[in-house]
Design a protein around this nucleic acid. Structure first.
Lengths: 238, 238
DNA sequence: CGTGCCTTTGAAAGAGCTCAATCCTGGTGG
DNA sequence: CCACCAGGATTGAGCTCTTTCAAAGGCACG
């Protein structure tokens, strides 16, 4: 059996109780281990329509945040791992559903100081939020480019590289994929079947290896990066 | 001849010199007409790689903000009209190109107070920024859902409704489309040809009318909204 | 060691894309 | 005021990448 969450339990290099992702920032966040919550795999953090609980930071494990269309079509806004912060509401209610992909631990920051009285917002904290959100916005724009213009192999290459970058949990080019093929598909605007076939094709091209359903290994990062950036010169001619 | 920009010159209901989009906020923004710049149609505000000039607010006209892939594939992040603010950089350089679609007027806010010294950031201003960006992020998520999962008629319905909402410039359900078909395509992840064909189909379904290449009129808003939300029950069976 | 869910594979169909030609329209110059 | 031009818009035909539908395979978990 493969224990997928185990490898996430390595020592933390960031402050593990706050959203600043920096070592030793306890004076800013004031968080301790007693603020920690947990959920089991497949349990739900919040549903669309739920009241905003506050700012959520994932301490351990992975969650997915999903939007639905009436007829069931889904889009996964993103996957959130250790250290990531979920900040997804303008009007006090979530328009997303968040579900644990693995067992998770998380912290909630209530946002009294960010309510309707802007004077209560500390400038330092606000500045941090701004750069967080600015980064998120840039990520969103890149992802829109991916969805609007990239082919399936380009999408998966981009995704794998970006995911590996965020999930530095395994060694020697090995990357853990805690989410299902269907989840990847819903994040990348594809179908489960196309994700499978494209991964297979990448394996045949010797760009990656599929060591296990949930563990892929990079064999040719340069090629991956070429694909991710839309240069497909290594693809066999049709 | 059709003067496309004329209809944008109606009296402003918002503060026209600042990014707060509120009437009479001069004490916050400190802007006057002397801060105004202009550009002609097709001229460029900034190129990818340009140094961040500051926060740009469009006072009049429309611009498009574009991202490019190496091989020329394009994605238009968004169209910005009167009152909109462009805030697109994390590292001091633009990773986008901004081009005027019509003649435009705009203001630049230099961001000395948002530099590396977070204490110089006024909490009120920061709070405003936060809600702006939060809104942008939500718009981005909706757009990703559109790109990932919606059909061409659903994309165009969503776009037309959203665009009309932001461009309340014409009466009786008429909407001005300052951008070309190709621009719409690059925003919606389609091709010029598919945009044309889909608009034609919507016209045949009597959901819209194309009064002029750049002016469409809503004939059945309910149907449009159904399409936009992914309910295609009005579509003729195949 | 069975069961159910997820993954993989196959075959056929289709939505949207590509390439190419033609049509408009607004702007230009006479 | 009119003819002409260039660039965008439209239309057509064929094609391709993905999707859809269906079935089989494999693995984790009880």
């Amino acid at each position: 059996m493969l224990n997928v969450t185990a490898s996430n339990d390595r020592p933390h290099t960031l402050c593990q109780y706050c959203f600043f992702r920096e070592p030793g920032c306890s004076k800013l966040c004031g968080k301790t281990s007693s603020d920690m919550h947990q959920l089991k795999k497949k349990e739900t953090l919040f549903y669309e329509g739920d009241r905003f609980k506050g700012l959520i930071q994932i301490l351990n494990g992975t969650i997915k945040v999903t939007k639905y269309l009436d007829d069931g079509r889904r889009f996964i806004v993103g996957f959130y791992h250790r250290g990531d912060v979920i900040w997804l509401t303008t009007d006090g209610r979530y328009s997303y559903t968040a579900e644990a992909i693995t067992d998770i631990k998380y912290t909630v920051f209530s946002l009294d100081w960010l309510s309707h009285d802007p004077h209560s917002l500390d400038a330092v904290v606000a500045s941090r939020f701004l750069s967080f959100m600015c980064g998120d916005l840039e990520v969103s724009h890149d992802h829109m480019m991916l969805l609007a213009r990239k082919s399936s192999i380009e999408r998966l290459s981009s995704f794998l590289l970006q995911h590996a970058e965020r999930m530095k949990t395994l060694d020697r080019g090995m990357v853990l994929l805690p989410m299902s093929r269907g989840d990847m598909a819903d994040h990348l605007g594809m179908t489960t079947e196309t994700v499978c076939r494209t991964l297979k094709k990448m394996k045949q091209l010797r760009v990656i290896n599929i060591d296990h359903v949930k563990i892929i290994r990079f064999l040719n990062i340069d090629a991956l990066q070429s694909f991710a950036e839309g240069r497909d010169e290594l693809l066999p001619a049709v």
